[in-house]
C-alpha cells in the first residue's frame, strides 16, 4: 500500500476520533492493538486473509475488541479491515498516533518494557525522556517479554536501550 493511502486512512481515523472526542483513548487503544498485531501472526493472518469473508473478519475484530476498548476504536478497526486494508493496519495506526501527537505538539515515545509500568513510572519516564530529548513526549508503553528486563525507548530516530535483551546479545556476540 502506498504511503499516500496509508496517510489518507490515518487522517480519516484521526478526524473521526477527534470528532468523536475520544482521540486520546482511541490512539492509545489502537497503538496497543498495532503492537499486538505485530507480535501475533495468527491474528494478523486472520485479519488479512482474503479467503475469509469480510464480515467474518469484522466479526473477529468485534469479538476481540468488543467491551475492552471504546466503540469508536472497534468501528475504526472494523472499517479498515472491511476495506481490505488489514495488512496495513499497524502502519495506519502508527501514522494516526504520530498525527495525534503532532496535533498536541508531542513526539511519540514508544517504550518497550518486559513488565507493565505503573502510572507513576510512566509519568516520571515521560519527564525523563522529555529531559533527555528536549521534546515533550506522548508515551506509548508496550509490554514486550522479549525485552527480558529493563526498557527500550524510541523517540523519533533516537533509541535509548536499557534492556537486558541487548546486554545479553552483546555478551553472546562477544562469546
Amino acid at each position: 500500500m502506498s504511503d499516500n493511502r496509508i496517510e489518507g486512512y490515518a487522517r480519516a481515523l484521526f478526524e473521526i476520533a477527534r470528532a468523536e472526542g475520544s482521540l486520546d483513548e482511541v490512539e492509545d487503544e489502537l497503538f496497543r492493538l498495532a503492537r499486538t498485531l505485530e507480535s501475533n501472526d495468527a491474528l494478523r493472518n486472520a485479519l488479512t486473509d482474503e479467503k475469509i469473508p469480510v464480515a467474518r473478519r469484522q466479526g473477529i475484530v468485534e469479538d476481540l475488541l468488543g467491551g475492552k476498548v471504546t466503540g469508536t476504536s472497534v468501528q475504526l478497526v472494523s472499517m479498515v479491515v472491511g476495506s481490505g486494508r488489514g495488512r496495513d493496519l499497524p502502519a495506519i495506526i502508527d501514522k494516526l498516533v504520530k498525527r495525534a501527537s503532532s496535533a498536541k505538539q508531542l513526539e511519540v515515545a514508544q517504550v518497550r518494557s518486559a513488565v507493565a509500568l505503573t502510572a507513576d513510572q510512566q509519568t516520571r519516564l515521560a519527564a525523563a525522556l522529555a529531559n533527555a530529548t528536549g521534546k515533550e513526549v506522548n508515551l506509548k508503553v508496550v509490554v514486550d517479554p522479549s525485552v527480558i528486563g529493563g526498557i527500550v525507548a524510541t523517540v523519533g530516530d533516537t533509541v535509548i536501550d536499557g534492556s537486558i535483551r541487548t546486554r545479553l546479545d552483546n555478551v553472546k556476540s562477544r562469546l
Binding site: V115, N131, I151, I164
Partner: peptide, 18 residues
C-alpha cells in the same frame, strides 16, 4: 529476574535517562 529486580531495572533506566 524477580519482580523486584525488574522494578529496579526500570527505576535505574528512568533515573539514568532523566
Amino acid at each position: 529476574l524477580t519482580d523486584a529486580t525488574q522494578q529496579e531495572l526500570i527505576e535505574n533506566f528512568i533515573s539514568k535517562v532523566g
